[in-house]
Design a protein around this nucleic acid. Structure first.
Lengths: 333, 333
DNA sequence: ATTGGTTGATTAAACGTTTAATTACTTATC
DNA sequence: GATAAGTAATTAAACGTTTAATCAACCAAT
């Protein structure tokens, strides 16, 4: 009652395992295997419910047709959606995906990379953690097929799919300016990841271009103390010396917690204070006013990442592709 | 520059691969390998950065220390969180997890089960799709380690971890009754999954116990036409002949879309109409009133599922465990 | 001096594939 | 009728482990 192997079919048909393998892998054309026997093999395989053992296959051929996906926080809807699209696209191209989660921990990322390598994934799609650069560097040096997504390290020669964070940020701030804001605060994570820096840079440049930039309106939040830090950040921005009339939230988690706190404070959004968020949240639909937000092309990010990776895995190319997708500012839907 | 294997270490140390394997698997006690050589092997392995090849290991030993997790909708926060906790617990116990997503498609579920079997996972944790019973049945017959989670099939002899849907539902309805509702509607999916039926049964029984049950106040929604069906359902409940004063939403997706529509209709929640939801949503924090909801012990569901599965995989037991966890009704937090 | 137990190591097969190399046969070519 | 070319199959090694079986050496006890 055990799994049926190529050997069983061979035995059943009185033919060698090599022939079976050839046929079942479609290498029976170019005059390798006779038509009748090939058909008989295919028939028998179906009949016996044969399913190839991927371990054996991977061991022998060094190819597992599996992609290792490492994301930073699976309970963040953005990443969950990203994972979804990556898996869909991978399946279309004949790959399966192992989804794993670092929970933003560098240690865990290192560990996971090793686990996945031992499982012989053919390539990685990674949303890297803050101090994960050395581990990525290591993969790059070993010439491992790899695509970074959402976040990237500018110094590394590695393909990536991100959004144009800089211009997204400019767009967001521009919107606040056009709506009449004069004192615009930024709430952003204090990590050193380049996409955060890009968002900050966009904010600064756009404000500077109209002489509205004021460094003390940038408030940084520690990811691990989100709930606490965000109240401090907002209190700071609303304080007597600052009195901002607009806030740009640089991520979806910041948006959610920030707006929650603003509502607690009974701040009238839109009237007393205008906000723009990076990334969408389901909760926007339930807020008393429409919240403008930067929409990311999640589906495209996912499919592009897979496509780039597959190219690498097939060794069709070894050039680095840096893909920067454009975002849209959604005012109301 | 290739991966270092057990052979390389053996060659380096002038010793057989068997010895290496023994030592590296901790089977060098009971007088199998000398102390000095064992230490030398461990030393060298570390030095050469040896990492075992799990394909070879799995092929030879038939054990992969990998759990296949099949969930129904990864972009649903409930499942994403569940996946998170399952992965955490699995890691603690020395297993890695392959997360996959059926998107509620029966076909996909069948396909994924096969893919994972070919990757030789040692066991499954599955959130089954509506018509997935035969595939689960098949796994059960083959005596495959398996735990269902969130949903279950009462006819199958298979371990599962779910919540006590029946009593959760009763609790929810009881709350509406206590808040003075006389005409309480139910909005629920029209699938035949047992946990849905349980929720419906709880609703019916609780209402019948106080003579308030009216079958026409149950509105069913098709998952694939959620957006459309939910408006019809709500319109029906609010119509002149029904005029409900309370609604129980049987899932988080139904809650979200339902409440969204109610707000569009400018229904005053709490005053004109009271609601209770099954499962929590981040969006509740942003609603004008507190939404009471049934809180599920997601973390516990995840860890329990892993524990049950690991017991099975280790063949410590072959008895079926049906675990039904209790929920809490959260009025306000 | 034979037997038997310990300790410490090796040998070789096995897991299920893939694939380069080989063989054997048939047919076509000059 | 010898050679080449094509067709159709097989053989056997290899991938990196694990593990049962075996062997070798030493020592103790009869």
């Amino acid at each position: 009652m055990n799994r049926v192997s190529i050997k069983d079919i061979a035995h059943e048909l009185g033919v060698s395992t090599a022939t079976i393998s050839l046929v079942l892998n479609g290498k029976d054309k170019d005059g390798r295997v006779g038509k009748e026997i090939a058909e008989k093999i295919r028939q028998k395989a179906r009949e016996m419910n044969y399913e190839p053992n991927n371990l054996a296959r991977g061991l022998r051929s060094g190819v597992s047709n599996t992609i290792g996906l490492i994301i930073a926080d699976i309970s963040n809807l953005f990443f969950a959606n990203l994972a979804f699209h990556i898996q869909e696209q991978a399946e279309k191209l004949g790959y399966s995906v192992i989804i794993t989660n670092t929970n933003e921990s560098d240690l865990k990322m290192e560990k996971i990379i090793n686990v996945l390598k031992n499982k012989s994934v053919d390539g990685f799609i990674i949303v890297p953690t803050e101090h994960g650069e050395p581990f990525i560097q290591n993969l790059v040096e070993r010439n491992f097929p790899l695509v970074l997504v959402d976040r990237y390290f500018p110094k590394l020669k590695v393909s990536s799919v991100t959004v144009d964070n800089y211009n997204a940020s400019k767009k967001a701030v521009r919107n606040l300016i056009e709506r009449g804001c004069k004192k615009i605060g930024l709430i952003i994570y204090n990590n050193g990841l380049q996409h955060m820096l890009d968002r900050k840079k966009g904010y600064i440049d756009e404000l500077e271009s109209c002489g509205l930039y004021n460094p003390s309106l940038i408030k940084k939040v520690n990811y691990s103390f989100l709930l606490n830090d965000i109240t401090i950040a907002i209190d700071g921005l609303l304080s007597i010396e600052n009195q901002v009339d607009g806030i740009f939230f640089a991520t979806n988690t910041l948006s959610m917690q920030g707006i929650k706190y603003l509502m607690n404070l009974n701040i009238k959004l839109h009237e007393e204070l205008k906000v723009v968020c990076f990334d969408k949240s389901d909760a926007f639909d339930f807020m008393p006013v429409h919240i403008p937000y930067i929409q990311q092309p999640i589906s495209e990010m996912g499919t592009d990442a897979v496509k780039l990776l597959v190219e690498q895995m097939k060794r069709q190319t070894n050039k680095i592709t840096i893909k920067e997708l454009q975002t849209s500012l959604i005012i109301s839907d």
